[in-house]
Design a protein around this nucleic acid. Sequence first.
DNA 1: TGAAAAGGTGCCAAAAACTGGCACCATATA
DNA 2: TATATGGTGCCAGTTTTTGGCACCTTTTCA
Lengths: 237, 237
Amino acid sequence: MTVQRRQDTLIRSLRRSGTSTVDTLAQEVGASRRTILRDIGALRDQGFVIHSEPGRGGGIQLDPSSIQTTARLSVPEVFALLISVAAMRATRSLPFSNLADAGLAKIEKALPTDKVRDLRRLLNCLHVGQLSPQQDLSDMGTMDAALLPAFEAAFLQNLHLRFSYRDAKGQHTNRTVEPQAMLILPPLWYLVAWDPTRHDFRHFRMDRINAPECITGTSFPRRHVPFEDDVCPYNDL
Amino acid sequence: MTVQRRQDTLIRSLRRSGTSTVDTLAQEVGASRRTILRDIGALRDQGFVIHSEPGRGGGIQLDPSSIQTTARLSVPEVFALLISVAAMRATRSLPFSNLADAGLAKIEKALPTDKVRDLRRLLNCLHVGQLSPQQDLSDMGTMDAALLPAFEAAFLQNLHLRFSYRDAKGQHTNRTVEPQAMLILPPLWYLVAWDPTRHDFRHFRMDRINAPECITGTSFPRRHVPFEDDVCPYNDL
DNA sequence: TGAAAAGGTGCCAAAAACTGGCACCATATA
DNA sequence: TATATGGTGCCAGTTTTTGGCACCTTTTCA
């Protein structure tokens, strides 16, 4: 029985029983009174809220609202959660957004620092807005998650991105652009990029992008994307 | 240097260096070759994917996709995340939704079983749809997160809910209803409830509900809410 | 008011876990 | 074949953890 394991059973005992005394817990867990007290201290250090009342009729109680859980998440999973919450917050529809943020902050804190930096940089490239009701959704496709790695690499390393694009009229062109931002107007995703040949910003609907690939060894300056307020041109090619 | 701490630094070393040999790692971490090998075994047991190649030119490598993180989350935080992801999935805008789901599933698995049951029951009461573009959002208020505990209790215990409601014309009425479902049409939240005096379903916009309170000791049957397809009447009182 | 029941702390020896070294094995490459 | 690498079993020495003890504080009840 390792320390970790014993503390887990202790928490489970506390959850089950509501209120109990140290001696009861010691018996249940199979450890001495002293060890239980030490474990309770350790759990408090870890952030568990454990109430204790001295005196006759007192006891130990785990604050039910503080019941916590641990899970191992991969970085892509964390990123997916971050985006969900960011998008949800943008629609201002979530009374829970503070809670969700708090949860994500904890998860982020547990990530290795270089990954956090990457996630932050990606999130900074991500703008979430509200879809204007006029937008025509009749031919909405689905974005293929398999395309994401290329985007991630392009954004994190400032690499040019080459892909084939099908425009609103159904015509295909090949593009090589400087990715500047990702724009989410649920349920559509856009790539906002500087097109060096046309010398202007362009918005590409992600569900119309095919076979994107990074061009390694190239690099470009990050530009200021004109996003504020009404400047969301939807100049869908 | 505790075991936990040393394993953390080991993981960090692996992340930094890409590929390295056991002896290098031992030197970096400040432990013996034997201990490093033991730690690698322990990390593998914990779910880290660590590749190793014997022979000249071989070495140890941490699978970058398996970089994981742990965090302790409270139940309300988990619930908030669940709702974010559910809402996001409903808009079909999230190429990550599978990833986010996988992450949440892991988190859920770590929750105490009774809490999972509660969460599932609450989520079953939660319907997320897409806002019809015609909806008038001009007077949109914000839902107060402070109202949520009453809703949670009402749904989990099948309790009648009493509140004062301001309808679209600005008139106030007092209601006592049987909560059946929550409906999210971002950015608006609705309470779908059976009104026993009017003998019909009603949709209440949550931002127009005031001072909700559960009526303890009362209970009622759960009804089938007519939700499918176009039956989303918006009969905003 | 005093006794009993409860949580909490400091200390120390005994017990348990961990560590490092060693010998040795398996595999791949020059 | 020699060398460089990962991997395992074993054991003595070291470090950490544990349990017991004495003692303190707070609360309740007789």
